[in-house]
């Protein structure tokens, strides 16, 4: 087998790279996939805003100013204020925290649970596989938002529950993709070697199979982040997500924002823009990552 075989490609060098080569890789990625780099830049800005929200937000996002209710954008309030006189810009900056927390939490939870189920299903095969896949089919039958709504209506609202609700529809999607890769990994001689060595099932699944199906999981998780943020906004907008007074973009779009849409449009426009931009950023990055890591497209 020549050294440049696809088998070697999957054995992507996990050794530690120096800072210089990481930077070079990033520059190379940006040059090849400018859209992906734009998406990445949006996300980096968003992460920085969320991380330093306490420092850069001009006001407390929960502080009400009854002297300046529904104030139009001005020097004091760059993006205006809402019906309670809370500063829109501060609430948006703090809202990026909620969005990222829910998005990352849900993606991570959904991806880990889904990949675990997928790998186990492929490893055990036979009846276990059949049963697990049919259960996954049941989950698949529901549209994402309906499934999330159902989970929230059972376990209630709040950040933690919303994460769980958004992760739920991701589990079967991830499980299916991972199962497909795991089926081929299952046939690799190193898995046979692990079985012949008398290792237990959990060890073979977690140590020998899971690390070798992580590439599609990472891509799915990135792509799902955007969807999770949108889902969180939708749930919050429907009143079944994050609850007041937490600053969340979807929540800012509802209630007074609808009522005063004509007289105070900034209340709806800016959170809406933020949601669009974030989802756009994550989708661009997710797509570019998928293309960049797909060996069939790599020759470009």
């Amino acid at each position: 087998m020549p050294p440049s075989s696809p088998l070697n490609e999957t054995a992507a060098p996990p050794d530690r790279k120096s800072a210089g080569t990481v930077f070079a890789t990033l520059v190379d990625f940006a040059r090849r996939r400018p859209l992906g780099a734009v998406g990445g830049a949006i996300i980096v800005v968003m992460v920085m805003l969320a991380a330093s929200a306490n420092l850069i937000a001009p006001y407390d996002p929960l502080a009400t100013d009854y002297a300046a209710m529904l104030a139009a954008p001005s020097e004091a309030h760059w993006l205006g204020t809402d019906a309670f006189g809370r500063d829109m810009l501060s609430r948006m900056i703090h809202g990026s925290r909620t969005a990222l927390m829910v998005g990352l939490g849900a993606s991570l939870l959904g991806a880990s649970l889904g990949s675990l189920i997928g790998v186990a299903s492929a490893y055990f095969g036979g009846r276990v596989d059949l049963l697990v896949q049919r259960v996954m089919d049941v989950f698949f039958a529901f549209p994402v938002i309906i499934l999330a709504l159902a989970v929230v209506s059972i376990i209630g609202t709040g950040v933690g529950n919303v994460v769980l609700a958004i992760a739920t529809p991701m589990v079967p999607r991830c499980a299916r993709v991972v199962r497909a890769s795991a089926l081929s990994v299952r046939e690799m001689p190193y898995v046979d070697a692990a079985r012949a060595a008398g290792f237990g099932h959990p060890r073979i699944i977690l140590r020998h199979m899971l690390p070798n199906v992580m590439a599609p999981v990472l891509i799915m998780a990135t792509a799902f982040l955007g969807e999770a943020i949108l889902l969180e906004a939708s749930l919050s907008f429907l009143g079944l997500g994050v609850t007041e007074p937490t600053a969340a973009w979807g929540l800012m779009l509802r209630g007074a924002a609808v009522e005063f849409a004509e007289t105070a449009p900034w209340m709806a426009i800016f959170p809406g823009l933020a949601i669009s931009l974030a989802v756009f950023g994550f989708n661009l990055l997710g797509d570019s990552l998928r293309d960049a890591l797909d060996p069939r497209l790599r020759t470009q």
Partner: peptide, 16 residues
């Protein structure tokens, strides 16, 4: 009872 496989490329876990 142990085994040595044919293909030395796929018989070792690439992540270890």
């Amino acid at each position: 009872m142990q085994v040595i496989f044919q293909d030395p490329y796929s018989s070792l876990n690439p992540r270890m």
